[in-house]
């Protein structure tokens, strides 16, 4: 019988704590598949953030360090410098990376740190219960923007992929969405390319994954996928913003 699906070796075969409809599971699988394809599980060290993915180490089947809030790129830098042969990736949410860890991500990119960052942008703080994130859209209601994010009060959401793509040390920067099979297929290629970039020694790589948070958005999973496509993609355009070979493309 032909095998049509298997859990990647870099993932542990167990259920996650993520909510129904959350796209963390998809992102985990894509990362694990890239690690499997490259055959580097035994030299991979992952760095977990503070946020919903704090327990990522329970799901990935490779060495892991758990970092303090926002500091995953700094922790990954320490690992990278200590272990030149390792494959190092950090997995961060939008509060972790775009808010409290803004300095660490910018400077890891500036140094061209040979790490891969998986950036989950779901426009909200998940673990703490749905507060406003730096990526929350204008008008989007959260528990700390109950009337919707106001431009004149909280400014416009930050576009991390575009910002990092201005940094010479960032060799590969892409934004993908996890909202449909076609998007997921493109996301998989981007994540693989990010790891390829690291293994080639080309510099820093980051894939921003537009993701859903049905629980804190107050939506059913399918509704959340639609909301992502109709509201997030127009503000956060998909594509490759920087590639090792130069140039950019729309996804």
């Amino acid at each position: 019988m032909k095998q049509v699906y298997a859990v990647p070796k870099a993932l542990q075969p167990r259920a996650t704590h993520y909510c129904p409809g959350c796209t963390h599971g998809i992102a985990h699988k894509l990362v694990a598949e890239a690690i499997d394809e490259l055959g580097v599980r035994d030299r991979t060290v992952g760095v977990a953030p503070v946020g919903c993915a704090v327990f990522a180490y329970d799901y990935f089947d490779c060495d892991f360090q758990q970092a303090s809030h926002g500091r995953a790129p700094a922790v990954a830098t320490g690992i990278r410098r200590a272990l030149p042969d390792a494959v190092v990736f950090a997995y961060q949410g939008d509060g972790d990376l775009a808010s409290i860890g803004a300095a660490e991500i910018v400077h890891a990119a500036m140094r061209g740190e040979r790490i891969t960052v998986i950036f989950i942008n779901n426009a909200i703080y998940g673990m703490t219960g749905g507060q406003m994130a730096p990526t929350t859209l204008v008008g989007q209601k959260t528990t700390t923007s109950p009337a919707g994010r106001k431009l004149e009060h909280a400014g416009s959401p930050i576009r991390i992929a575009e910002m990092l793509s201005t940094i010479p040390g960032a060799a590969y920067v892409a934004r993908v969405a996890l909202s449909s099979p076609a998007h997921v297929a493109r996301a998989k290629r981007a994540i693989r390319k990010a790891f390829d970039t690291q293994l080639a020694g080309a510099g820093f790589s980051l894939v921003e994954c537009l993701s859903t948070c049905p629980t804190n958005w107050g939506m059913a999973p399918i509704e959340a996928m639609t909301w992502l496509e109709e509201n997030m993609i127009p503000y956060y355009p998909l594509g490759e913003f920087r590639t090792p070979e130069g140039g950019a493309s729309n996804g």
Binding site: R71, T77, G78
Partner: peptide, 16 residues
């Protein structure tokens, strides 16, 4: 980039 980052780099390297 900061003392905050420096000590977390120490964390990563020590963990390695």
């Amino acid at each position: 980039e900061s003392e905050v980052a420096a000590i977390n780099m120490v964390y990563g390297a020590a963990g390695a």
